[in-house]
Design a protein around this nucleic acid. Sequence first.
DNA 1: CGCATTTTTGATACACGTCAATCTCCGTGG
DNA 2: CCACGGAGATTGACGTGTATCAAAAATGCG
Lengths: 213, 213
Amino acid sequence: MMRNDLTDAKISPFHYSASRKRCQQHFEACRTRSFHQGEQIYCARASGISWRVISGSIRLNRMANDGGMLFANLAVEGDVIGTETLLMGRYEFLAVALSDCELAPWPEGSSSASRDSLLRILAAAERRTADVVALRSGLAMDRVMRLIAMLAQRDEQADFCFALPKGQDISEITDLTKETISRTISILKQKGILRKKVIPGQSIHRNYIFRER
Amino acid sequence: MMRNDLTDAKISPFHYSASRKRCQQHFEACRTRSFHQGEQIYCARASGISWRVISGSIRLNRMANDGGMLFANLAVEGDVIGTETLLMGRYEFLAVALSDCELAPWPEGSSSASRDSLLRILAAAERRTADVVALRSGLAMDRVMRLIAMLAQRDEQADFCFALPKGQDISEITDLTKETISRTISILKQKGILRKKVIPGQSIHRNYIFRER
DNA sequence: CGCATTTTTGATACACGTCAATCTCCGTGG
DNA sequence: CCACGGAGATTGACGTGTATCAAAAATGCG
């Protein structure tokens, strides 16, 4: 995982995409920052850089008129957050980890953001908006299932594995109460759609396997 | 409105921002396209260009799994839509006019999109996401009021004037039923918060004045 | 004028919110 | 090792804001 792939390459690692990818992974591993569930990643109005989400999920909050924090957006694996700092030098939202997660500085390396990469991020943001808006319509069960589908990644056993965010977070994302979320999750566990994933030697209790039907 | 402001300028119009703005308006007036309420602006998978919203409001729809169209996003004055065509050459969403509106091709002129303009559009998109997500929480009255506040622009009499979208559209944006929207709008009219704006010699019946309290 | 679409209004049903009590988990310190 | 405490999760009883269904009225348009 952490071996230096650069030294393995017989030729310049940039000649082949597989090698480039490994190089990229190595590079990211060196500069990656980890956050725990519930930990604040950055704060609105603070200065900082943009990040790519390597793993885990993040919620972005906006200050409400009354000073409270309102859910504003969601970021999952592959998304880039905090791009507003490239323009204004300051974050506009407050970012909190929904699950344990890893972030890498973006843009990668010393290069600045290219036009195409910005366009890709913009297109991804528009898709994400549509997804997040959809999380707030339909029955409670549908909303929770859609959120889980966004968070779950297919793991090595071809199951969908993910870390369940706290009830309070799920409730604010889906615009339901934490009591309704608790009842909904209970039904999913009872039906066997959601099962606890025990990772030997690891004390993380919020990992679940998600199996449709 | 349509007079050639360029010829009025005694000096280069680009020396002063007021002149530059007028020049910009003139330029846009020449290439602007108008759409009526309910009219389709573009279709998902069709090829085309990006647009800046000069006036009016637009809803973006996404295809649901069952083939139906789901509300995905909102665009108002100043927003840029369809940027995904700069990358993929095809639209990803379906755009429909919520009110009569005017669009101008973007990027303006023959120049291509600059890094900074893309960053500004990305930042605006993130803010818009937060706004649209907020439209789907709270009481029916609050949701409708927030939507109106997004659509209303301060006019020359310092009132907030806007074109009310169809009930069906408001209901899909706020995730309420059209019956609930009808009841809510009725209360707003009854309270005098919403008043019909009659424009002499114009047959547009959906213009309203919005006065808080 | 006549038809299609949209809006309005009323009666009833229900999914979820609210409130309150209890339980579980987990870190902390004696 | 266990008692303690706080945060979060769970469960139950009950209330309510909005959905649903149905029918009438208003509006827009050729």
